[in-house]
Design a binder for these strands. Structure first.
Lengths: 203, 203, 203, 203
DNA sequence: AATGAATGAGTGTTCATTCAT
DNA sequence: GATGAATGAACACTCATTCAT
């Protein structure tokens, strides 16, 4: 058990690293096994196929992060605090293991569709928080999905910038600004349930 | 030339469609040639390799979009109008050819690094607009890169939601809300950490 | 077409030879390609898989032989002559290409089950001739299936003996004796529709 | 010893069953071990390799059957009775354990060559009986090898028909007919080519 | 320009076999 | 004797690429 666990962890870490460095298709099972320090065949004791490996790696981490996010948000008294906790949590998560985040980012397309219907993803968590805030009147009522998309995108893109070297400091250093920005996005202005036909927003 | 152009266009369209439907690695040159209605070998008259095809497709479209974005923004008098024009332009671009956008989204990782140092990407355009707005005092001075990331992310994620079916209407229907949200994000508040819910559009 | 045909024939012959020499499982696609003088990949232009190759080789030859057998039998006036023609035909077939026969013998188990329900096999041809002979009273009425089995087995086993070196001369040299033996088997004695409970056949 | 024996028997039975169901090449050591209820490695306490297992299984059963056949024949006073005893014995053997017979049938090619020069096979037993009958004048003198082949083939093919479902009743129900047919084959006629239907059992 | 048969390196995967426990 | 994780040499098969036509 001891050995088996450590072997699997070595596989996971090796795969994660290679997937991020070269991409999934460009990484062979041989590459992963070599970096993990095992023979190719041994990998199949832990995952039934390369596809399985990618899928398990993605889904387990992706859904675990959703739970983490939910846990952070649950204890908070106000929508603003909930958002703040989630943003901060995300930044910490990212700074602790940016490689994992990069992996999730890279492989999401093609894996997302395989999630079971009822799976609670990070997206669902954020959307629920946003929708609740609107229902309770803590925030102007708008299209909850669109609002959730914007908040998620704002934070995610910051992380992406970080990965591509467009942001110098650890993501945690931007957490305040990110949380504040998201709050402005969400809480600012008047209600305007989109899509609405009225226009002209120029002051 | 007429024939050649049309063949190339068929290749491009076939490749684009297949890449989005199945992913790049899962699409073979044979698949593309077949859908384009030519023999496998013929494809090599137009692209020297599969990698080349992906790269050409990505870079030309990606950089062309940057120019489009820049053009839209150039004529506008204020930062808010510039942002509005870009958001609206993006939505129109997306609704006209969402497949192309999905392609750009999917292949960006792995292609982004190949862009030449001085290339003007959509990201650069947005960043420049945001930075200029801050310099001119049209918007509170904050970290321009972070602000640009958030704005870009907010809009991009809305498009991603649209692709995954999380938003029902055409993206254009959300353009107002998107532009307004981005403006709130950019222009709202004074300090980085604003714990108070009140805000005013212009400082 | 010229080239393609010859390539396929080279593949068939190489596969046949190797299957007989080493067995199907012991023969790799590489072995076949090498003996056929082509690259491994080229084989897949002619057969979609190794299984397909074995199956095509077996079924085409097996069913073609059934037709040959049927043709030989058709022109004959009496049951004895029909049997004689078939036995003689089989021996000629064997002596012309014993390797093909050995192949059919070796791979039959596992391939036989894949034949479509209505396929006319050599076994069906012989059985039909035997049954017709019984119906017309040319031969005592017995269990047609059993009688067909015995006739087929008698000839087949002679061929098998030949393959294993237990018979020195060409099979054709035994054709008279084989045909006569089969005829004795079929035509001799009184009718005794088996399975019947009565016993004791000792004189 | 008790336990070991039973383990080995379980291995043998598992292997036999799987070989017949799927074929030898399609059956892995893991499959066998699993069905036998042991770990893969444990199998190597009983057989040094998969090849060994197949070989031991084949040769022991094949040669044991030869002895059985010989024993059955030995006590009989006449050639006809000897043949009858052997046919009957074969049918009983088949009905008692058709899986074993199917195994012998399937793997014979490729194993037969490994038998030592002097090994007494079922074929040798039958041939000896046939040859002796000819020498003693109990049966017309013909090519003993060919005659033996025909007799063996006739019975074997009936068994094969049974395996493939072409014969409905237990093989034992056909024993009379089989023995009679073989005897006609052997004892009937005078010359190799007997165009006349009349015959007498003993010359 | 186009064709499509051919190439051959490389992939994911299997599986007989070993060996530390 | 038994276990089962690990090995590593195959294997079937794919596919980007070439090239004679």
């Amino acid at each position: 058990m001891r050995d088996s666990t450590s072997t699997r962890e070595r596989i996971d870490r090796a795969a994660l690293g290679l997937f991020v460095e070269r991409g999934v298709a460009e990484t062979s099972i041989r590459d992963i096994a070599q970096r993990a320090g095992i023979a190719d065949g041994a990998l199949y004791r832990h995952y039934r196929s390369k596809d399985e490996l990618v899928w398990q790696l993605f889904s387990s981490r992706y859904l675990a992060f959703a739970e983490t996010l939910d846990g952070l948000q649950l204890g908070q008294p106000t929508a603003e605090r909930r958002l703040d906790a989630m943003v901060r949590g995300f930044c910490a998560f990212f700074d602790r293991d940016w490689e994992l985040f990069a992996f999730l980012l890279i492989v999401q397309h093609g894996q997302l569709a395989r999630l079971s219907e009822g799976a609670r993803t990070p997206v669902d968590i954020v959307r629920a928080v946003v929708a609740a805030a609107m229902e309770r009147g803590e925030v102007p009522a708008r299209d909850a999905d669109l609002a959730a998309a914007m908040v998620i995108g704002a934070v995610l893109q910051a992380a992406t910038f970080k990965i591509y070297g467009r942001l110098p400091a650890p993501l945690g250093d931007y957490a305040d600004e990110l949380a504040a920005g998201c709050w402005r996005l969400l809480a600012g202005g008047k209600a305007a349930h989109s899509p609405s036909p009225e226009r002209s927003r120029t002051p």
